[in-house]
């Protein structure tokens, strides 16, 4: 099996042309990044607002959690059937728009609940101290609550990204591009080396992105919070809760 995958991956024919790895990799990243940016533009401000004001948290968290029970394949096929006939265009837009909607919907819950949880888990004494020092509400949010919540917000972004990368693989089933093409086409052609190589590429991509984001997180989060450079590791109970909560993937 390893030899088959190696042969497939080292065949230069698979790295050129419209069905080559670079093209499908670019498509995969493109779908994922568009969805992630739109989802972040919705989820992060909303999470900050809810965490800061404490209003509406119950409803939003309940909705975000119930989203996790929805089967991704079901959502994807449903939206494509619902929306695709109404888009009159040539090219991939017909399938791209419904797929992006699903990717955005799947990316929102982790980021939203983690941002909210991160802000609301900030020690009330810290918040009081900020107020005592004369900070206004917005200053407290940006200079105190946000930096404190960053580890949780990052773990939300990471699990959203993984979810989106995994689901973008499935969009190949509804005739989009991306690395999922190798899995779906390989299955249709009974070409196991192609499927397995595609699967390896997707898994490596997910892994690399997670490692990259972990590195960014390491340097973006204040060392006063991570305890980096100090010997004692602080285990934050809120972080543990979030690790449990930030689970689903496709």
């Amino acid at each position: 099996m390893i030899a088959e995958i190696w042969n497939w991956l080292s065949d230069s024919a698979h790295w050129h042309g419209p069905d080559g790895v670079p093209i499908h990799l670019r498509e995969h990243l493109q779908y994922s990044l568009i969805a992630l940016l739109i989802a972040a533009a919705i989820a992060l401000p909303l999470g900050l607002l809810i965490g800061h004001t404490g209003r509406g948290s119950f409803v939003v968290v309940a909705i975000a959690n119930s989203f996790r029970a929805l089967p991704t394949v079901g959502l994807l096929t449903f939206f494509v059937i619902l929306i695709a006939p109404h888009i009159h265009s040539t090219g991939t837009a017909t399938y791209l728009i419904p797929s992006e909607i699903v990717l955005v919907l799947l990316a929102i819950p982790s980021m939203l609940t983690n941002t909210y949880a991160g802000i609301s888990a900030v020690d009330p004494a810290v918040r009081d101290a900020a107020r005592g020092m004369g900070m206004r509400g917005s200053q407290t949010l940006w200079q105190v609550e946000l930096p404190n919540a960053l580890p949780l917000i990052f773990s939300g972004i990471r699990s959203s990204f993984l979810q989106v990368i995994a689901t973008a693989t499935i969009t190949a089933y509804v005739s989009l591009g991306g690395l999922g093409r190798y899995l779906i086409d390989g299955l249709a052609q009974q070409d196991y080396p192609q499927m397995a190589s595609g699967a390896v590429l997707v898994a490596v991509l997910a892994l690399l992105i997670d490692v990259l984001l972990a590195a960014v997180q390491r340097y973006a989060v204040s060392r006063g919070i991570t305890g980096r450079y100090s010997r004692k590791r602080i285990v934050d109970p809120a972080e543990q809760q979030a690790m449990i909560a930030a689970a689903p993937l496709t």
Binding site: L162, A166, A199, T250
Partner: peptide
């Protein structure tokens, strides 16, 4: 555990038969 969790499910469903 974290690394295993990053593998997309469709990829794992396809790699396991080989393994």
């Amino acid at each position: 555990a974290g690394l295993l969790y990053t593998i997309p499910s469709l990829a794992l469903f396809i790699l396991l038969p080989g393994l």
